Amino acid sequence: MELRVLRYFLVIAEEGSISRASEVLHTTQPTLSRQIKELEEELGAGLFIREKRKMVLTKAGMYLKDRAQEILSLSDKTTQEFINQRKQLFSGHISIGCVEADNSDTLSMILEEFIADYPEVTFSIFSGTGEDIIDKLDGGLLDVGVLLKPISTEKYEYVSFPMHEKWGVLVETSSFLAQKNDLEPKDLKGVPLLAPVRKDVQKKFANWMEQEVDDLTITGDYNLIFNVFSLVENKVASALTIEGAIAHRQTENLRFIPLHPPLETQCVFAWRKNIMFSPVVQELIKRMNDAFRA
């Protein structure tokens, strides 16, 4: 005996007509007739006396009506209690670390939906380098983080965002490099560069250049690209960066030029292994897994 069929039965009993009940329930008359017939067969008793213009409950039908109301009331009450418990459960705070990248927009979209579903949840976002975020993840100061690959699989679980981040060089518009549509390794030989502080990023770039890291002309390194803009504008050096980090910040004096052949990386949403997170953090991780796990 299904709850759905009991609801059908109660509406028919209330309306006194299968045709009117079908309008209320937005289903067809044959469907309701079939469901009631199967219910009568299951119970071994007739539930309605079918008169010309009205369906009247039999004695068995009146008994079932009372019991069905009790059953559905208990079902609705139980469902509501779980909803109330869920609302209570999903209130809390999430601490999120995020590197400068295009995929921060992806995080924003997920958070928008999450907060709409759980308005009592609050969050804080820490912007920094991958090293800063990893340090805070390891120290328990952040729950989750958006990082650029590569990332340690020994300490972290993660899902990869589908959008790839494109590497290039931020140059001052009067630079000879600014006249090019893309930059090949030969174009950057001996060019003073400001590079991200992460050694694995510098190594990735060195491999693309077919050089050793020590042979690169790195004038300085940086953690946040914002601090580099004035250095590039004043022609101290050009800056190796991903396009997403500067997409909404370029000025008329600066230009981003992609590398060719393309050098790309992915962002990941990462969290520490073997940690008992709060229910609200677990739910956010589940949503990220559902959205992006291949």
Results as ranks from 00 to 15, higher is better:
Arg4Ile: 14
Arg4Asn: 12
Arg4Cys: 02
Arg4Gly: 10
Val5Asp: 11
Val5His: 03
Arg7Thr: 12
Arg7His: 13
Tyr8Ile: 05
Tyr8Arg: 06
Tyr8Asn: 13
Leu10Glu: 11
Val11His: 11
Val11Ile: 00
Ile12Thr: 06
Ala13His: 04
Ala13Arg: 03
Gly16Val: 08
Gly16Cys: 12
Ser17Asp: 03
Ile18Gly: 00
Ser19Ala: 05
Ser19His: 02
Arg20Tyr: 04
Ser22Arg: 01
Ser22Leu: 05
Ser22Asn: 00
Glu23Val: 11
Val24Tyr: 01
Val24Ile: 11
Val24Gly: 05
Leu25Met: 10
His26Ser: 14
Thr27Pro: 01
Thr27Glu: 13
Thr28His: 15
Thr28Ile: 03
Gln29Ser: 08
Gln29Val: 14
Pro30Gly: 06
Pro30Ser: 09
Pro30Val: 11
Arg34Thr: 05
Gln35Ala: 07
Lys37Met: 06
Lys37Arg: 15
Lys37Trp: 14
Leu39His: 09
Leu39Thr: 01
Glu40Trp: 08
Glu41Met: 04
Glu42Pro: 03
Glu42Cys: 14
Leu43Glu: 07
Leu43Gly: 04
Leu43Asp: 01
Gly44Cys: 14
Ala45Thr: 00
Ala45Leu: 12
Gly46Cys: 06
Leu47Thr: 02
Phe48Trp: 11
Phe48Met: 04
Ile49Trp: 12
Arg50Met: 09
Glu51Phe: 15
Glu51Cys: 05
Glu51Lys: 13
Lys52Cys: 06
Arg53Ala: 08
Lys54Leu: 07
Lys54Asp: 05
Met55Cys: 07
Val56Thr: 09
